[in-house]
């Protein structure tokens, strides 16, 4: 099932399917370990405000707007 990252609930691990934002952001996200095919875990998602993800072994805060542009597979 493919859904935007912003819809993923806390505690779930998902696989990134498509990052549809500018190349600049794709570069930044991939250097943090978030790219097509990588596994990420949602640590925090309070229906408002930014999400907190676990990418590789670090915590990354990402704006909700950006999270909507990242499609993931459950």
């Amino acid at each position: 099932m493919k859904i935007p990252l912003s819809e993923v609930k806390k505690g779930e691990t998902v696989k990134v399917n498509c990052v549809s934002c500018g190349f600049g952001l794709i570069k930044r996200l991939s250097s943090l370990g978030l790219y097509n095919g990588s596994d990420i875990k949602v640590i925090k998602n309070d229906s408002r405000g930014p999400l907190i993800l676990k990418v590789l072994n670090s915590k990354i805060a990402i704006g909700r707007g950006q999270a909507r542009k990242i499609i993931v597979e459950k």
Partner: peptide, 11 residues
């Protein structure tokens, strides 16, 4: 529009 937020929360 505001710009994207991507920020590491270091341990």
């Amino acid at each position: 529009i505001s710009t994207p937020l991507v920020m590491e929360l270091p341990p």
